[in-house]
Write a protein that binds this DNA or RNA. Structure first.
Lengths: 243, 243
DNA sequence: TAAGTCTCATTTATATTATAAAAAGCGCCA
DNA sequence: TGGCGCTTTTTATAATATAAATGAGACTTA
């Protein structure tokens, strides 16, 4: 949902404003006419943007009652656009922990399946992901992109459409997660070894081992985040500089 | 996305046609003017419907090139609307297996978390789900609804927004799953006992046990589906009446 | 002949205006 | 006081005009 044209641009801006909490019960969405003025757009373009956000669970429009932001539990958080908007402007350690928690369940499941059903092409993609991570370690590839490529390859290799669907979600989450936790400083080597254990298990068809290796990998990431947060809390208490 | 008004009705119809494979590379979506005629709608209403489907990953429209169905891997399968459309018209054992597979990873994860963090209200909802299942067994409640209520309560009790987001998905999937596998014929009692084990573990705060109990529960459902499918395959081979 | 450029036609994108439908709020009346 | 019906506001739909994008084919030129 890039700003390739006016409608998409409005959807983007409005989407960000909504998920960052600009509108609520006491500060509702302006009526169509005002929104048109605000974005300098016609009703057609604006209404189409609003309909896109409605489809993603962010808005609800009814005649005479106006257009309202839906309660947060109706937002389609698994939609990469929605998740992206949320992450782009609103840093939240809680959110980071929450999606690492769900990755802790999902990715081992995908790895287990992948070990059972992955074909030659899918296995090649996983192997290639590991190679890219190794290349990144030598400075020949991007560490973030290669990491994401590996996790996406595993999800795809599960040959399950719902896991495959989570690639967009995972890629967005991972990009944000890694950027904010900002690893790649010495942890890299150990991390590659852990990733390689997962890959080896999948390639060898050892389903249980693959799941377990993936679980450990993500559990480590979760522990790291929690430790960091605790640390920052301590610093805040001590009056130190924490973000 | 009910047919509350014209635009939503068009989105529904078109959505079903798309996911059931009416349109493809060799049979592309008609141009706007033709679609308007087909649905007896104005361009405004039609375009708004198309934009909703675009937001859900089903369509992509560009000037001069027309509007095309996106490749299936871009469909937002975790969106309850999209999943519902897929299930409503297109029975698919493969799909049933696939979403039971992902439930096998997700729901134990949610149960584990729930055991750690569920508050009084969330615990009450889980207890109530069990009570409803028991009531259904006596004929005093709906077996399908009570089953769904229990699983939804566990997801919510995880206090994780991404798990909570999957309630819509799970409810849709479960409704379809149970209807087609059509249990509730003697299996019921054993099923309630298994559900109660999950609930007890969560209520007692035994996280690992809760996850494991949930895993067993869903693994049983998965085995049942696979056995059924194998059975039907056998019948088909034997020339018997399948489905 | 071949490669590049230009023009034109087609289709979606946006704008504008008018009318319909829904529903909240108010006032009238019994 | 309570219910009924008008009025007004806001979204829903319609109809039409213009803009922008782009694919295809013609045209130009080396």
């Amino acid at each position: 949902m890039q700003g390739q044209n006016l409608t998409y641009g409005i959807a983007n801006e409005l989407g960000i404003e909504i998920v960052t909490g600009v509108y609520s019960a006491d500060n509702p969405i302006p009526i169509e006419a005002q929104l048109c003025r605000k974005y300098g757009a016609s009703r057609s373009a604006l209404r189409e943007a609003v309909k896109m956000l409605t489809a993603k669970g962010l808005l609800d429009a009814r005649p005479r009652r106006g257009t309202w932001v839906q309660p947060e539990e109706k937002w389609n958080l698994l939609d990469p656009d929605v998740l992206g908007w949320l992450l782009e402007r609103k840093y939240s350690p809680a959110l980071l922990i929450e999606f690492t928690e769900i990755r802790l369940a999902v990715e081992p499941g995908a790895a287990t399946l992948a070990a059972r059903v992955a074909g030659p092409q899918e296995k090649a993609a996983i192997r290639h992901g590991i190679e890219r991570m190794q290349a990144a370690d030598r400075g020949d590839d991007d560490p973030l992109d290669s990491d994401i490529a590996f996790h996406v390859a595993v999800l795809r290799a599960s040959r399950n459409r719902f896991y495959a669907q989570l690639t967009g979600f995972t890629a967005t989450a991972l990009r944000f997660s890694i950027q904010t936790t900002n690893r790649y400083k010495g942890v890299q080597l150990a991390s590659i070894a852990d990733h390689k254990k997962v890959a080896d298990a999948i390639l060898a068809g050892r389903a249980v081992a693959a799941g377990e290796a993936m679980r450990k990998l993500i559990q480590e990431a979760l522990d790291l985040i929690c430790k960091r947060e605790a640390l920052q809390a301590t610093r805040r208490l001590a009056g130190g500089s924490a973000r």
